[in-house]
Design a protein around this nucleic acid. Structure first.
Lengths: 254, 254
DNA sequence: ATACACCTTAACGCTGCGTCAAGGTCAATG
DNA sequence: CATTGACCTTGACGCAGCGTTAAGGTGTAT
């Protein structure tokens, strides 16, 4: 198929002026000029224009594009794979921006707090990849992705009052655990009260509470040394004691 | 928190020059100027800048932004909801672009064919909404979404040779059906051969063949008047006959 | 007191087109 | 066959949104 300027322009969703400009700067020359001086574009030009638009969409300057697609060793397939990768990156960034809007909305309605830094998340390009690579992996691998990640987010978004209340609840869990430990009975009333406090505390972090998840976290307190260390400060074996109490409390036994 | 130009610039991921320019054109004035003439930005300015960047990301001109966020009845929450919607639209467009890359890759490797128009899908903004609204609904509602839609896609992407072969298979189905109809026996050999040809024909459209899906389509030939009309051209009751034959062929009976 | 990282205003330059202006081409129409 | 209307051409100016350079003041740590 052959196209005049406006034909190709309409096809590609750009202006005729843009095509003339691309001709002028040598980025995209028509296949030929007809007897009346009209620009006529053919199949090759269509493919080249597609490449140009992909690069443009990704924010590459026209001169750089010219160098890239004009290079003698330019590979369309290779370029397309590159485009794919870059577009996926862009989509990721868009998702961050959307999350930002949601968060800002929640903040504007007073439901959560928000740092200045968070208010600009998603606007800056790049850099996030590195963070993702550096930290993302180990942290998520250990914690089990989704749930823990979400908890952390929710924690970051609390208002100060909420945060204070959580802190209070957290320390009362520790206090109750201390008393319960003295009895030595994870099924006893004190231990069960501790488990209940622990449930309340967790509910601040989670959207939905389930017995299974609660028991899962209790088990993690024993499996993950960071948590174990935290609870065992009170007394060695405290983490295991809390886990036993929660298992009994929830009725879940793994 | 208070920020100098560079402080805010780093926070927001923009340049100090940009902030000075925004001051110059009255888009974002600092909260105050200190004794040495430094620009100092406060909390309000941060929120305003966030709004500005959202609009900018969506391609709105600076002057228009100025009018919007400077309007006396400007509502942050309302704006955020708008942003959300626009960003979702943008993400949709990005998805189209990514699909385009994938398709172009398949095309470049000779696996499918591709029209010129398809090569520019996703570059043009807008308009797709209307198409979606106008056609999408009725068509999908009737046909059962996914499967039919996918089939259509696959059909569009075939090379010419493939297409020719499919056409040939399709007409041989009709021919076989005609002969089979003469026997009047959907369980007979001719009818079963027809069902087998029909299976082969379907396999060109589907990624994975299952007896159930095959039988489902056969039933649709009776239920949907467009298909019924198509087959009944041969002879009234042809669609029902084909369905019966396919039911026997697949061993599925609904 | 000097070095260094900030800040200021002022000015010019660049990209990627949009937007006239002034004119030729082409097919259908009265 | 002349006119109309939708195309095409080159040429030129204009504009947004900054980047960049220049020439200089500020703040504080050594």
């Amino acid at each position: 198929m052959e196209y005049t300027v406006q034909g190709l322009a309409k096809l590609a969703g750009i202006s005729a002026r843009t095509l003339r400009y691309y001709d002028e700067i040598g980025l995209l020359k028509p296949a030929r000029i007809n007897a009346s001086g009209y620009r006529i574009y053919g199949q090759k030009e269509i493919e080249r224009l597609q490449q140009i638009l992909f690069y443009r969409e990704l924010g590459v300057g026209l001169e750089k594009i010219s160098n890239i697609v004009g290079a003698p060793d330019f590979s369309q397939v290779k370029a397309l794979r590159e485009h794919r990768e870059q577009l996926l990156k862009k989509r990721k960034q868009l998702n961050v921006l959307i999350a930002n809007v949601d968060k800002t909305l929640a903040w504007a309605e007073g439901r959560i707090s928000m740092t200045d830094k968070e208010k600009f998340e998603g606007f800056k390009q790049q850099m996030l990849d590195d963070n993702e690579k550096k930290y993302g992996q180990e942290i998520r691998a250990k914690y089990g992705d989704e749930q823990v990640n979400k908890s952390y987010q929710k924690l970051k978004n609390m208002t100060e009052e909420q945060f204070a209340e959580v802190e209070k609840l957290g320390s009362s869990v520790l206090a109750a655990l201390k008393s319960a430990l003295a009895t030595g009975d994870p099924a006893g009333e004190l231990a069960q009260q501790t488990a209940d406090l622990h449930r309340q505390w967790l509910s601040y972090y989670w959207d939905s509470y389930t017995k299974e998840a609660h028991a899962g976290v209790a088990q993690m307190y024993v499996d993950d040394e960071r948590f174990t260390a935290y609870y065992d400060r009170i007394q060695p074996g405290a983490a295991a004691f809390l886990r036993d109490a929660v298992f009994i409390y929830t009725g879940v036994n793994k």
